[in-house]
Amino acid sequence: KFNKELSVAGREIVTLPNLNDPQKKAFIFSLWDDPSQSANLLAEAKKLNDAQAPK
């Protein structure tokens, strides 16, 4: 279960257009550290992506 959630969340995070590479890497490392938090980490990444969207 975690492997699928981890890969789905990881793929989504790397495609978020408004995150820079260090931010993406930080989220990916957090996913590896605790795969059970993949849904929460993906939600946080999406929030940050939205907040950094060009206005």
Results as ranks from 00 to 15, higher is better:
K1R: 13
L19E: 00
E5W: 13
N40H: 12
L6H: 05
K47T: 07
D50T: 07
K46T: 05
K46N: 06
K46E: 03
Q52R: 04
F29N: 06
T15D: 12
K47D: 06
N18Y: 15
L41P: 01
V14I: 14
P35Y: 04
K55E: 10
K25C: 15
N20Q: 06
L31Q: 01
N3D: 14
S36Y: 07
K1A: 13
A9W: 11
A45P: 02
K24T: 02
N20S: 15
A39S: 09
A26W: 15
P54G: 09
L48S: 02
F27T: 00
S7G: 09
K47Y: 06
K47S: 10
I13Y: 01
L41I: 14
F27C: 04
K25F: 14
N18I: 01
T15N: 14
Q23E: 03
I13S: 02
S38V: 15
D21V: 09
Q52A: 04
P54D: 08
S30E: 06
A45H: 01
N49Q: 00
G10V: 15
N3Q: 11
N18D: 01
K55Y: 10
Q52W: 02
F29G: 04
D33M: 14
K47I: 08
L31K: 00
E5P: 10
P35G: 03
L19Q: 00
P35M: 04
S36G: 09
L31S: 02
P35F: 04
A43I: 10
F29H: 07
W32Q: 07
K25L: 14
L42Y: 03
K46C: 05
L41S: 01
A26F: 14
D34P: 02
S30C: 14
P22R: 14
F29K: 08
E5A: 12
A26P: 03
A51V: 07
I13P: 01
S36H: 06
Q23H: 00
R11E: 07
K1C: 15
N49L: 01
D34S: 05
E44K: 10
L16K: 01
N49T: 03
V14C: 15
V8E: 13
V8K: 13
N3R: 09
A45D: 02
S7F: 15
N49S: 06
K4E: 13
G10T: 15
K24A: 02
K24P: 00
L16C: 05
K24I: 08
N40K: 13
K4G: 11
S30T: 07
P22D: 15
A53V: 06
E44Y: 10
E44M: 12
S38K: 07
I28P: 00
D21M: 11
A9N: 04
A9R: 05
F27Y: 07
F27K: 00
L6G: 04
Q23N: 01
P22W: 15
L42H: 01
T15F: 10
S36Q: 06
Q37S: 06
I13M: 03
A26D: 05
A51I: 11
V8F: 11
F27P: 00
R11W: 15
K46I: 10
D50I: 09
A9D: 04
K46W: 05
T15C: 15
A26T: 06
D21Y: 13
L19G: 00
A39L: 11
D33G: 09
R11S: 07
A53S: 10
K47H: 07
S38A: 14
G10L: 15
Q52V: 03
L31N: 00
D34I: 03
F2P: 08
W32S: 05
L41E: 00
I13G: 00
E12V: 13
K4D: 10
A51H: 07
N3E: 13
K1M: 14
K55M: 12
A39C: 10
L19A: 00
A43G: 04
A53H: 05
A51N: 06
S38N: 05
E44D: 06
Q23W: 03
S30P: 00
K24Q: 01
N49M: 02
L19Y: 00
K46A: 04
